[in-house]
């Protein structure tokens, strides 16, 4: 079974296999991001702009702002959870309060490539 992922209701939430899994309005801590000048970005998720699957990861680019400095914009790709077994389809969300590392999807930056 393929994993079906989309954002709905103006980006209010991410649906994974027709189940509401990730919502806006949570705070995410982002590290090593160039979203703003803060050492860690205290990021309020206001809307999911893009969603994607990079098995087993479910990823999203999120619109929002850093509540420490006020910088607003859209994050690079963030892992919001995983579907380890596509046949079972179960989604395991990440803990948004822990530290996350947004990634640009550029292979050039990866070691060994």
């Amino acid at each position: 079974m393929t994993t079906d992922v989309h954002q709905l209701d103006d980006g209010a939430w991410i649906s994974v296999n027709d189940s509401r899994e990730v919502n806006v309005s949570d705070l995410w801590l982002l590290a090593r991001s160039d979203f703003c000048e803060c050492e860690t970005t205290d990021f309020l998720a206001e809307g999911f702009v893009k969603v994607g699957v990079d098995h087993p990861n479910i990823e999203a680019r999120i619109a929002g702002q850093c509540i420490a400095c006020g910088e607003s914009g859209v994050t690079d790709w963030l892992i919001v959870g995983r579907v380890v077994d596509p046949d079972a389809g179960d989604f395991y969300g990440v803990v948004h309060e822990s530290v996350h590392f947004p990634e640009k999807r550029t292979r050039l930056a990866r070691p060994g490539e």
């Binding site: 103006d10 209010a12 509401r20 806006v24 309005s25």
Partner: peptide, 10 residues
Amino acid sequence: GTEYCSLSIV
């Protein structure tokens, strides 16, 4: 607001 709405923050 958050009473019923998915998008609301507060």
